[in-house]
Design a protein around this nucleic acid. Structure first.
Lengths: 197, 197, 197, 197
DNA sequence: AATGAATGAGTGTTCATTCAT
DNA sequence: TATGAATGAACACTCATTCAT
């Protein structure tokens, strides 16, 4: 049993983490493969043992960054709670990847547009499914009269997503309770508004 | 004042527009000075007649992109209307630059982080003032009991900004009434929530 | 009138000559763009002002290398002399580019195979036309009974070409009479054979 | 002697064949050690078990490619037949390696120039001996008046070699009778010329 | 108001080679 | 008899920038 386990899956994750970090902090085009290698303590050429190209590295990071959201929302949508509760739960669920793997999420948001058409397609598909799942929650709430009858569900979805994703731009929290608190307050605003009821 | 003023100010704006367009569509690091020159129909070296460096071009675009917001919000804050009306008006005002000069705004949002410290400072300062003006509106609303007493004004500000800015990611509207409609619906959600009152 | 005329067409030819020289002596894949630049006394990046890519440089050199042959043979074929005289004249004509621009010819022969399909096509087309013109000379000689009735004209063409091109591998002559002498002797062998008549 | 000898000699030949194939098709500098490894179904690093370096592989392939010619010509030169018959026999003999191991021969012709001085020397020595053996045949023919008295034997040798080697550039025959037919026709041209006697 | 010609630094990528296993 | 992991050197090519004109 060696002291440092350098077996494949773990090492692969280290490489991905380094790529995600560098892409998130410098942008895809502002980041060099040397930046990634430096973070790993290997030489630049060494990363080509793990990734066929810089762009493939980007697409992998993006894929990981979006998968989390989709999986969580689907479970919530299938659960047996009220529409308002689903929205609240989804906001909370949305915060988890932002807290746990902010680099991947940031790269998915800001850098996926630099993927060439073929590499961008599967990533975009997952993102669209997530949007659709959310929109259906709003429709459900309108249908059972929990939400206002005149609510523009498409716009509400986009609003919710914009709201939640903007957290990425300033949140650098360290313990999970902070992000849960944010999620709670955001849910209050979206569901009940800021006005005195 | 000649009828067709082809002198510096007009040409200068064309250069800025080209830079804003290219930075917005390809990102600062993904854009080359040749891309800008191509859009202007001149050769690469020609743009150095107008800008000392690529980074200076970026900082100019960013400055223009943020100034609009700040100016409009200050006027609204000074006006003699209710806090809720101010928020509603600010949302509408926020949409105008997004509609009229989306490239500048997008560059300010996504690319200002690539400015070196010194060039970023004045731009960031304006952005912070804008945030502060907004936050004060929420505080005013809490003080006069229009808004919930337990409202986290800092978070509400960030939420509002995230919400409004996210419009940039999908809005490609052509007439002004579309964006006004969006502003109205967003204001309803923020002020009153999605729930059936 | 400047002392050193650096005007475009002349400079372009200097670049081509350098590329031809380097490709001929080191092979396309063995040659680096730095080798070409060094020969020109400029830095490596400088050659990209003249050529879009290393491969385009190769295709240009190949095109120039083959054009000469084709043009000369066509004129001889159209002239009003006997078939045997045409063959003799063609052999002499074939030697001229080998003497005057051996680098281009060598690159055409040895390196054109490294051109990608699209770039290779026009070059190959010219080469095939040259072959056809030659073959027709042999057919003419068989038709008018100058040449043996059982002569395999296709094979004779390939033989003649192989014979003439092989000169490239050892000839490094300096004055034109040497190559003319070689041409004369080769013509004797092809037309009359080595045997005592 | 085991029936199926899977030990070194056979495997070594497979490796050489793979190297010869790849060098012949892509050129020495255009070929990578990975290309060779792929053809063998092993990983890149694996070929270093068989060859100390890529260049050693090239020199081996070249040596095998030239040995054949030399051995065959020596036997013919020593035989008790006329000079014309020797030339005819040598042309036929020259075709055999071209038919049976074209990759090796092609590599010897086109790529041996990329060998460094020390590695090229033994290969060149064999080639020169072959040339000398051929030239002596022509001299013999001139001496016994079979061939024209004014024949330039050095040039005739070079011509013959150029003629025969050019077959490599287009011949991709499958049965031995084809190449024998070519050899016969070439011998006719060289010995008797193309003219009607 | 712009261009032609170049440069120096850097970028992504390939490749021959090594070495422990 | 090979492979996994890496390295160092090279490579084609891009790019921001300069400067004489």
């Amino acid at each position: 049993m060696p002291l440092t386990d350098k077996s494949q899956p773990k090492r692969q994750k280290e490489i991905m983490d380094a790529a995600a970090f560098v892409f998130a902090h410098k942008g895809f085009h502002g980041a060099s493969t040397k930046d990634i290698a430096d973070r790993l303590g290997i030489k630049q050429a060494g990363i080509y043992y793990y990734f066929k190209s810089k762009e493939v590295a980007l697409s992998e990071v993006c894929r990981v960054g979006v998968e989390e959201f989709h999986d969580r929302a689907r479970d919530i949508a299938a659960s047996d709670i009220s529409a308002a509760a689903k929205i609240t739960a989804t906001i909370a669920a949305h915060m988890t990847p932002i807290h746990e793997m902010p680099d991947y999420v940031e790269v998915f948001h800001n850098e996926r547009r630099y993927l060439s058409g073929d590499a961008r397609k599967p990533v975009t598909a997952l993102a669209l499914q997530y949007e659709k799942t959310l929109e259906d929650m709003f429709r459900e709430g309108v249908a059972d009269k929990t939400f206002r009858a005149d609510l523009d569900c498409r716009l509400a979805t986009l609003a919710l997503l914009g709201l939640c994703n903007s957290v990425l731009q300033w949140y650098r929290g360290e313990n999970i309770s902070q992000i849960n608190e944010i999620a709670r307050k955001y849910a209050e605003i979206v569901v009940g508004g800021v006005r005195q009821p």
